[in-house]
Design a protein around this nucleic acid. Structure first.
Lengths: 127, 127, 127, 127
DNA sequence: GTGGTCTAGACCACA
DNA sequence: GTGGTCTAGACCACA
């Protein structure tokens, strides 16, 4: 469900934070959906539970997640609306800009980049 | 020449590290090319000189840059070869994979992503 | 464990670097051994933590030490082999050459030098 | 006459400083002896003249050398006395202590060290 | 507790 | 002018 890379330079809790936000924005995590437990996630990714917990707490503070005593955390009820396409595209822009910048620093052309992305897209799970 | 974003989560010195590597890989920085001075870069990006210096030192330890006492650092002589296209594409893959993953988490489809990238590409300086 | 002299002319982080290398080469620091924490070392030698940290980072880049998030640094697992005597002697040669050169510049003879070294050796902790 | 190693970590001017002091202490440079010109030394060791000049100036300030307009620097007259053996040995002690410490960190024994020094001594020019 | 990153700023070595 | 070393100290990420 999540991909956490300890070597990417980006703090782990931030990686998690952003991924949850995206899944909620797209409706893959709907209002009321349960999240994996801190323990499970920590075990699955060989990460300290406190790190996961910190990300969850920040998302709770933000109103995106909701804590339920003795029960898994869930996506907060008030956040049921899927964000419109334009808004989701906007969320992706910074990452895409960075990629384009890198491509140019590597003197790749637009076709090279498109081919690479297509290849990755197709090697993905499905679709 | 470089783009440093203090809010991206990636340490500034790592951002610089990777950008220098890419410019050398593509031959935009050739063997013998001088790099901007630590002070200039620090001023230009409102960053502490030690942060720049740290990146430069690591690149020197790596053999990519060469220190010249009292003179600007240069790209090391032995790194004259521009890396072949395939190798440069490979360097871009992790970033591209991350982008595709994010796009999917946002439930964007392949067309949305391509459109976004095209738009960014065109808004770039030229090409 | 370490001797750091701020007046020797050799940068402190380099003094530390070399001493760690020697202790690993001789097996006094074995694979998996924990190193003193950055803070402890800094306190013990009245040196800034960043100075220690710099040495440790370089040794990590070199593959000799291994970082453990939130835990003390350790000697890297792959460096378990104690270096053979000949190799360790070779490591000492530059320093010894320098000493011989200095002795000659001071017009000491071989006996003077040997006596001096014997005296120092015996005043050491043991052996 | 001098050995300057830009990679030793010790500043070049300090290396020169110490070597001149030793040659004077031992009488190899006597009162009135001429020193090599800044230019020659700089050329011979591929070092900037200012670096040599700085060392000479410090030795002048110290009273060991004497500047002579338009003529080479000389060893100052008042420093004609060769230092006694004990004093010269004392000057060598810090370097020798460092070497013993290093030998111990490398787990070499006294015999190893003595053999190494003998070998270096014999490979020297003469004596 | 561990190490990492960064700043502001002093001072050094070298060209 | 160049880069290097070091300090004092804030704050972060992770265990």
């Amino acid at each position: 469900m999540f991909t956490l890379d300890p070597h990417s330079g980006v703090p782990i809790y931030r990686q998690l934070l952003e991924q949850v936000r995206r899944l909620v924005a797209s409706g893959q995590l709907k209002a009321g959906s349960e999240l994996p437990s801190v323990r499970d996630l920590a075990l699955a990714h060989a990460v300290n539970p406190m790190t996961i917990s910190k990300a969850y707490s920040l998302l709770e503070a933000e109103g995106l997640l909701q804590r339920n005593r003795g029960r898994p955390m869930t996506v907060a009820a008030r956040r049921h609306a899927i964000e419109p396409l334009a808004s989701r595209v906007r969320q992706l822009a910074p990452q895409a800009e960075q990629l384009v910048r890198s491509a140019r620093q590597l003197e790749l052309d637009r076709k090279d980049l498109r081919t690479l992305i297509d290849r990755i897209w197709e090697s993905g799970h499905d679709k």
